[in-house]
């Protein structure tokens, strides 16, 4: 098991290095920081622009490979370079990473737990009303892209605020209200009010995917001998389902966890941008428009590390759930 994990980890490290390098090359090749200076008034002299770009390691007159080596050397020392405005990328991103992490974690936990529960319940009552309803709803949700869903939630949220509650309950912009002095509980409820709609828009898709996978995996084991044996030795149907069927059916679903994580990150990007959370995703979209090569490369690197951490977590989860993997 340890050897297996070490081999996986090594493979992942190489993948992260290659992916980050590729992302840097792409960003440096496709984005054009020089154009940021083109429409300034008064127009800066070319020599000044050149000197500034060179200082930021963004000068397109320097060969791409040389810029890459400078960047990679910095990254190895833990320094992602500077943004187009000259401030360090590290500071900016480490502040924003927390915001994204909170959003993704809440969405992930809500999405996967609810999804597994819905799928298990649907499988337990196959072809019942709950099964049909959850199938129909997940079909609908899978046809809704996050950008549309988030906008719909904002519209419906504001409508509900006006018509149903009469005062703002769902807050749709930012992570918390600025300058709010309402004590601990006031701050907490303010944060929760801001959190509800982004979490829904992020996790509804996950619920749909996980519930489908969980339902199929659960149906595969429901007819298995060990579930029948468990009931034959005196367990109630509910006990047999929860203790034996649910746990076994979680094994294949755990592998999907790694695949959905990338989609979750992308979804978080959209959610942040639309709900105005100042996280990594919002920064990514803005930095592409401002031709901020170093920031784009740093965020790609973080995303690649996050996806691989998720697949490592899926491997560990698989091992925890399945004794056969541990034995190898």
């Amino acid at each position: 098991m340890a050897a297996f994990l070490v081999r996986r980890l090594l493979n992942y490290l190489v993948l992260v290095a290659v992916a980050a390098s590729l992302a840097y090359m792409l960003a440096a090749g496709a984005l054009d920081p020089r154009s940021n200076y083109a429409d300034r008034t008064p127009k800066p002299p070319p020599a000044v622009v050149d000197a500034q770009l060179t200082a930021l390691n963004l000068n397109d007159r320097t060969p791409l490979f040389q810029r890459y080596l400078t960047w990679a050397g910095g990254v190895l020392r833990g320094d992602f370079g500077r943004t187009v405005t000259g401030s360090p990328v590290n500071e900016d991103l480490s502040r924003r990473a927390g915001v994204t992490f909170r959003l993704v974690m809440v969405g992930l936990v809500c999405g996967s737990v609810l999804g597994v529960l819905v799928g298990a319940a649907a499988a337990a009552g196959q072809y019942g009303w709950f099964d049909r309803m959850s199938a129909g709803l997940s079909f609908l949700v899978l046809a809704l892209p996050v950008v549309v869903l988030a906008n719909m939630l904002i519209l419906l949220g504001t409508l509900a605020n006006e018509r149903v509650f009469g005062h703002p309950v769902f807050l749709v912009s930012g992570e918390y209200s600025d300058g709010l002095a309402a004590g601990f509980w006031g701050t907490l409820s303010d944060r929760l009010q801001h959190l509800i709609l982004p979490t829904v828009s992020l996790s509804v898709g996950l619920v749909a995917i996980f519930s489908r996978y969980q339902r199929n995996a659960m149906l595969d084991v429901l007819g298995a001998d060990f579930v029948r044996t468990a009931m034959a030795k005196g367990l109630s149907r509910r006990q047999a389902l929860v203790r034996h069927a649910l746990r076994t059916a979680l094994i294949p679903v755990a592998t999907y966890f790694a695949f959905t994580f990338g989609a979750l990150l992308t979804g978080a990007t959209f959610t942040e941008k639309i709900f105005g959370w100042h996280g990594l995703g919002e920064r990514l979209i803005d930095s592409i428009f401002t031709n901020d090569v170093n920031t784009v490369a740093a965020i790609s690197c973080v995303a690649a590390v996050a996806v691989l951490c998720a697949s490592l977590a899926a491997d560990l989860l698989h091992a925890a759930l399945d004794p056969r993997v541990r034995a190898v």
Binding site: L22, A23, A30, G262, T266, V296, S300, V307
Partner: peptide, 19 residues
């Protein structure tokens, strides 16, 4: 294939969008 799975598609496509 693993390499392409590691990088979120949205990110790469967005970076390449000026092209």
């Amino acid at each position: 294939a693993d390499l392409l799975l590691v990088l979120p598609a949205f990110l790469i496509l967005a970076v390449m969008s000026p092209l």
